[in-house]
């Protein structure tokens, strides 16, 4: 493996929990009600060009613009073929699909909107961003339940290390589930995008960055989530991330639910002596990434973000933020 250490040099967020990475209100409930209360399409993206673009892609475009603006002039130094983009999403097009299905089963496919039709495919969310920013290196859309946003950081990092690009945009985008869907009340909306580049490249252009992060992913089969084998899996994942199993940071944030997998993982991590903040998970991949973004933008006590999905997918991201004495980032 090549020695490419990526540093986060830009963060962009649009979400009902706030749009400033350092000031996300992640301990409280998100803003409820209409999207307009937290997302201003015209202010974010301009007055036109996005009529047919679904919500999740609008959020992702806006978060990407914010992240790139935050990172400073990074794209100009990276050829299009050396830019990569990894997106995690679960419900980014759930409502789009539902509305299309209603049309097809009702009045028929002839009445589908052609300009919206491509968005039946979930990878067009990231595809739209690639078009806007000339991301020609590669483009990945990951959809593993709940973990896919953190997996985007992992898969993106791996792709850069494998030499597939020199710049990584990675994050999550979600849009609410259809109103009549079970789980709608736990819907997430918004997007978070991180700009990552090799440390040497960031230094060369004078970018300080927020710090670095590393992710591992693993799987706990729900039927044996509390087994000794599952315990060894968690230990092995922690070891891969930290070098030794006992080195867990003092505060861990776990985004999950009371499923057997979430409960078992909480129990394992709780044995470590670290303080475990358990945050109720939403229906998608966004919240874990927001915790990562916030943990980097406003260095505090949380240096490990963990998430677990009831189906068994689990991921952990270790944050190594630069501590900025002047708290410059807070005033951004």
């Amino acid at each position: 493996m090549s020695a490419v250490d990526l540093v986060v040099t830009g963060i962009g967020v649009v979400s009902p929990w706030g749009c400033e990475p350092a000031k996300l209100r992640l301990d409280g409930e998100p803003a409820t009600g209409a999207e307009e209360s937290w997302f201003d399409l015209t202010a974010e993206l301009g007055a036109r060009g996005y009529k047919y673009v679904p919500s999740a892609a609008r959020y992702l475009l806006a978060a990407t613009r914010r992240a790139l603006a935050d990172a400073g002039p990074v794209l100009s130094g990276v050829p299009e073929a050396r830019r990569g983009l990894a997106l995690g999403t679960n419900s980014g097009i759930a409502s789009v699909i539902d509305a299309m299905d209603e049309t097809v089963t009702g009045s028929g496919a002839d009445l589908l909107s052609p300009a919206r039709a491509p968005y039946f495919s979930i990878n067009t969310l990231a595809g739209r961003v690639a078009m806007e920013h000339g991301v020609k290196g590669w483009n990945l859309t990951l959809t593993s339940p709940r973990t896919a946003g953190m997996e985007a950081l992992l898969a993106g990092d791996r792709a850069v290390r494998a030499g597939r690009s020199d710049l990584l945009l990675a994050g999550s985008a979600e849009a609410p589930l259809p109103v009549h869907t079970p789980g709608h009340d736990r819907s997430e909306a918004g997007a978070a995008v991180l700009v990552l580049e090799p440390h040497a490249a960031a230094v060369a252009r004078g970018a300080t960055g927020y710090g670095s992060c590393r992710t591992v992913a693993f799987f706990l089969p729900p039927s044996e989530a509390a087994s000794p084998a599952a315990g060894r899996t968690v230990t092995a994942a922690v070891t891969r991330l930290l070098g030794e199993p006992s080195a867990l940071p003092p505060v861990i944030r776990l985004v999950t639910d009371p499923s057997p997998v979430g409960t078992a993982l909480a129990a394992r991590l709780g044995q470590s002596g670290s303080r475990l903040d358990v945050v109720p998970a939403g229906a998608g991949t966004l919240q874990p990434v927001l915790h990562v973004a916030h943990g980097l933008a406003r260095p505090g006590t949380v240096h490990l973000v963990v998430t677990a999905s009831p189906d068994g997918a689990c991921a952990m991201t270790l944050l190594r933020p630069h501590h900025l004495p002047d708290q410059k980032r807070d005033s951004v």
Partner: peptide, 13 residues
């Protein structure tokens, strides 16, 4: 082409 199709269906309807 996509917006062209969109225009077509809009005018037809």
């Amino acid at each position: 082409s996509l917006i062209g199709l969109e225009l077509q269906i809009t005018l037809e309807v």
